[in-house]
Amino acid sequence: MSEGHIIKVGMADLNVVKAPDILTTLGLGSCVGIALYDSIVKVGGLAHIMLPDSTQIKNNSNPAKFADTAIVKLIEDMVNLGAKSSRLVAKIAGGAHMFEFKNMDDMMRIGTRNIAAVTQILEELSIPIIASDTGSNYGRTIELHTSTGVLLVRTIGHGIKEI
């Protein structure tokens, strides 16, 4: 089996590919990486969202920035590549608290709020979250391997795992 291309997904960005390509996002902090996968056609999608809710922000022109709009766009793009939304499964990572400022409840919880929003939206869309590596206080780099559906999570000082 040939090694696929590695395609980078930046902050507030998303992309979809077919096997054997690999999607990666580097240095996830409080943002959440959402990996969706259809194992039958081996189509994968990865979004790197920053904020939970596009309706709370005036300038919401970039769908990849928000949990609600990014997931919808990701599914659309995957369906265009041959995936079926009823077959999709999700793996999520990120949502860490990188800094623990006192008296800043809202910001302190942004990682948690991002995870909560992603979880809720996926549930509403009946996409099961089959694995996750979220929270805590460290950064993560993730890779979605579309040949296998494996999500590789790399950290500094907190190990490497496949979920």
Binding site: G27, M50, M98, M104
Partner: peptide, 27 residues
């Protein structure tokens, strides 16, 4: 100023914090 906070980690993860705060309304 606030009390300073430290994080020793990947640059991208550290930068996500100011990015979320300051690129919230702008891109």
């Amino acid at each position: 100023v606030s009390i300073p906070q430290i994080s020793i980690d990947m640059a991208g993860a550290i930068l996500s914090y100011p990015a979320i705060e300051f690129a919230r309304n702008d891109n």
